[in-house]
């Protein structure tokens, strides 16, 4: 029984570590992975999601509704941002990097000036389940499921819908896509807006586990970039899943047996090694593997 509860606890820790990385990366998968915009305002978009969810929750909406509201509010904000600023920087990666960094400063400091140093937090929904001497938070179990669901949804959207097809075409070769009648301007806007919305969505989901403060976004930025970069660009979605699984596979046992500090060291080391060994990220491996499998049928 004792042994079993350790196993369950480690599985749970593995799940939470992975889900945390995936949730951090969700919006960035689209914006960095597909549009190749180094979006340093990613954390602030997540912060906006948390703020929207908190305000909606205080206004009396149930938490799940508040999360949905966050998705749309931040998504619309993303669309506006894309129209006004980001579109002027397509193809200029460094320009985009600097301008999104500026946006992040404006957003966090502006929030601080307007709404003050913090908002009241959202109580974590769900209780705890005891497993031997350990206990699992129900909400984190839900988060694991939701993050998996969100990634599946994203994969479906990009692989099975017309919008997905247009989006992939635009990202691969915008000129050709335009020639074939795709409104690439619209695709860019919708993609950026979707990425922003997803950042808001995961910010809202993580809000109950965090202090809701203007500078809270910073904590998500490093995990998000690590996950997406380790995942690689060949197939962003599969890459992000693969990298979050791999990274939490390394982090979980080290963190559990040797402590949080070494857990973090292990995570960063693993990221380093993976990028060194697979410069194109985890997804390049998947891609080659699936290419080999699918080639005969094509």
């Amino acid at each position: 029984m004792e042994d079993l509860s350790v196993v369950v606890s480690i599985l749970y820790q593995f799940g939470t570590n992975g889900a945390f990385l995936l949730l951090c990366a969700l919006g960035l998968i689209v914006i960095l992975g597909m549009m190749n915009i180094i979006n340093l305002a990613h954390g602030e978009l997540m912060m906006m999601g948390a703020y929207t969810a908190s305000l909606a929750y205080q206004a009396g909406f149930p938490f799940p509704i508040a999360v949905v509201i966050s998705f749309f509010v931040v998504g619309v904000f993303g669309a506006v941002l894309e129209r006004l600023v980001v579109r002027r920087f397509y193809g200029r990666e460094l320009g985009a990097l600097v301008v999104t960094w500026g946006i992040s400063l404006l957003l966090s400091q502006g929030t601080f000036l307007v709404l003050g140093p913090f908002l009241p937090s959202i109580p974590i929904p769900g209780g705890a389940i005891d497993v031997g001497q350990y206990s699992l938070s129900v909400y984190w179990l839900i988060l694991i499921a939701v993050s998996a669901g969100a990634v599946l949804g994203l994969a479906w959207l990009y692989n099975r819908t017309e919008f997905g097809l247009h989006a992939r075409a635009t990202m691969q070769n915008a000129e050709m896509a335009r020639a074939l009648g795709v409104n690439t301007d619209r695709v860019y806007m919708l993609t950026f807006s979707l990425g922003a919305g997803l950042a808001g969505f995961s910010g809202a989901l993580l809000a109950p586990t965090a202090s809701i403060m203007p500078f809270m976004g910073q904590q998500f930025v490093a995990p998000a970039f690590i996950t997406v970069v380790v995942g690689g660009a060949s197939n962003v979605i599969a890459g992000a899943v693969g990298s979050s699984v791999l990274l939490s596979l390394v982090r979980t046992p080290v963190g559990f047996y040797l402590g949080a500090f070494l857990g973090l060291v292990a995570l960063l080391l693993a990221a380093l090694v993976i990028i060194r060994l697979m410069p194109n990220g985890v997804s390049a491996y998947f891609q080659r593997w699936s290419d080999r499998r699918s080639r005969p049928t094509v």
Binding site: S9, Y12, S137, T209, A210, G259, A260, F261, L264
Partner: peptide
Amino acid sequence: EFIPLSVSEFSQVIA
């Protein structure tokens, strides 16, 4: 246990 300032997810520490 000393926890780096960047850590914000505590399920492992709790376990």
